[in-house]
Design a protein around this nucleic acid. Structure first.
Lengths: 263, 263
DNA sequence: CGTTTTATTGAATAGCCTCAATATCGGTGG
DNA sequence: CCACCGATATTGAGGCTATTCAATAAAACG
C-alpha cells in the first residue's frame, strides 16, 4: 500500500477523481525529494531555486508582492497540498515572493520532471503554462493594486498594464491605443465607483498624464505616468526562460544584492 | 508559410521562444474551429459550452464575478491572444463569467484536444490543471472581496474560505481550526490595516460569529457567519468533473433558468 | 525577566461612496 | 433634419468606512 495516499496533495487529487496506480506511483516519486523550511523563512529575493515547483506537504506559507512603498500585499496563503511556483517554472523571474509562516516541508519537483510528465509537445505545453502563469501574475498585480494602491495610482497602473499587454500582440502604438472600455468597466475592474473613476480620470488628464476619451487612451506623458503609477512591467514579461537543455551548470548571477525597497 | 504566425496567440507563443513546425501545425489545427460573438454577448449563465477552452483571436472581453448583492467584479479583461476558460475545462461549474465588449472571434479547443496535447498521464495533468484553476478561483474571489466587500464581510468570508480549504486536506474540524496567522497577515491579505482588522475581529467575536484568538479560529455560529459573509463555497469545489470518455451526446440540462441575483 | 512581537483601544482625518442632477454622444424613427 | 432615447460622462454635497498617528497592554521568546 502506498502511504502517499495520505499526503495532502494525494488527498486533493483523489478527491478529484481516482488516480491510477501508475499515477500514484509518479506522485510518490515526486514526493521523494523533500525540503524543509524553518518558520519565518522568506524567499523574498528569489533565493527559492527557480525552475522547480514545490508541493507543500506540511506547514503554512503565503505568496506576496512587495510594493515600492514597502507595503506588502499577500496574494494567497498556501496550506498543505498546495502548489507553489507555477510561475517560476516558466518565467525568467517571477516577482511573486514566498514566505513560510510555520516550519514546513515541501516536495521539490524539477522542471524537467514536470515537463516529462507533460511530454507530448513541450513547446506548446510551455506556451500554455506561460499564458497561465502570466494571467496569474496579472491577477496578483491587480490584487495588490486593490489592496494597497489608491484609486489614481490604481487606474494609472491599470492603463499602463493594458498598454503593455496590447503591445505584445501589436495593438498599441507609441502614443496610445484604441480602447473599447467604458468608465464603468474600469470601475468594476478596479473596485471603484464609476463616479470616482471619472474624477480620477479628469485629474490624470488635467495633470497631463493620460487621456481616456472617446474610445482612445492617449499617453500625454508616458514617463511621468510610469513614475506616478510606480509601474514596473516586469510581471508581464512574456520572455519565456530558455528550456534547460540537459547540460550546463547554471550561472545565474546569484541575485547579486538586489536593491530592496525598504519599508 | 503558415499565416498562423500572425494570430495573436502565435505571436505571444513565439515571443516566448520559437515553436517547431509541428507545433505551429497543431496551433493551426486548433485555430480552425472558430466561433464568432457579437458585442455585448454575455455568458453570465454558463451558456458558454463547458469542457472547452477558447483562444481569443480578435475583440475584447472580460471575466467577472457577480456578487449576491448584484454588484459585479471584473477579474480581468481578455484581449486577442488570451485564453478563456481554463477553469471550465476541469471544474464542473466555473463561477467565472465571461462577456464580450466588442464583437469577437475565438478558436474553440475541445477538452479532448487539450488533453491529447498533454497526453502522458491524464489523471495527473487533470489534477494539476484542477489545482491551478482552483487557485485561480481563489484569487478571483479574493479580488472580488477586495473590490466589492467591506472589511467585516471580507474577513468573515476569508475565514470561511480557509476553513473549507483546510477541511479538504483534513485540517479543520467541526468547531474550527488551528491557525498560525496573525492579524497582520490578515491585514496584508485583505488589503486592510492591522488596526482595523483588530476592530472588526472584535465585532465579529462580540456578535458571537467567530473567534480569532490564540492561534485558533473558532466558529461560534457557523450558519450565521456563512449568512453574514454571503459565503458560497462553490468556487472551492474540488470535485473534478468526469473526463468525457469518448461517446455520448451531452445532456446538460440547458442551464434551465438559473435564478439571477438581480441588481 | 527584559525585549520583541502581537493585540487592543482612542481621536482625528482622508479617501471613496452615496445620492442626485445635468450634460453629451450616438443612434432611431418620425 | 430634428426630436427623442438610452448609454455614457460629468459635477456637487454630505456621509461613512477605513486610515493614520499615537499610546498602552498582553503574549511570546530567548
Amino acid at each position: 500500500m502506498l502511504t502517499v495516499c495520505e499526503s495532502p496533495i494525494a488527498r486533493k487529487f483523489t478527491a478529484a477523481g481516482t488516480l491510477s496506480t501508475v499515477e500514484l506511483g509518479i506522485l510518490s516519486d515526486i514526493h521523494r525529494r523533500r525540503r524543509r523550511f524553518r518558520s519565518g523563512t522568506d524567499f523574498g529575493h528569489n533565493e527559492l531555486p527557480n525552475r522547480s515547483l514545490y508541493i507543500l506537504a506540511s506547514g503554512w506559507g503565503f505568496t506576496y508582492i512587495l510594493l515600492p512603498d514597502g507595503s506588502r500585499q499577500i496574494i494567497d496563503f498556501r496550506i498543505p497540498g498546495d502548489i507553489i511556483g507555477w510561475g517560476s517554472l516558466v518565467l525568467p523571474k517571477s516577482d511573486r515572493m514566498v514566505a513560510m509562516i510555520t516550519s514546513a516541508e515541501a516536495s521539490e519537483v524539477l522542471e524537467a520532471d514536470v515537463l516529462s510528465t507533460f511530454v507530448a509537445t513541450p513547446g506548446l505545453v510551455r506556451g500554455f503554462l506561460l499564458a497561465a502563469s502570466r494571467d496569474e501574475s496579472v491577477a496578483a498585480e491587480r490584487l495588490a493594486g486593490l489592496g494597497r494602491r489608491q484609486a489614481s495610482e490604481r487606474i494609472a497602473h491599470f492603463l499602463l498594464e493594458l498598454a503593455m499587454r496590447l503591445k505584445a500582440v501589436g495593438l498599441c502604438g507609441k502614443q496610445g491605443f484604441s480602447c473599447p472600455l467604458t468608465q464603468y468597466h474600469l470601475a468594476d475592474a478596479l473596485g471603484l465607483t464609476p463616479v470616482h473613476v471619472n474624477r480620477v480620470l479628469r485629474d490624470l488628464r488635467e495633470d497631463g498624464l493620460v487621456t481616456f476619451q472617446k474610445g482612445k487612451v492617449t499617453f500625454d506623458d508616458f514617463d511621468s505616468l510610469v513614475l506616478f503609477a510606480n509601474f514596473d512591467g516586469a510581471y508581464l514579461d512574456c520572455t519565456l526562460s530558455e528550456p534547460r537543455r540537459a547540460s550546463g551548470p547554471d550561472h545565474r548571477p546569484k541575485a547579486a544584492e538586489r536593491s530592496h525597497p525598504g519599508p
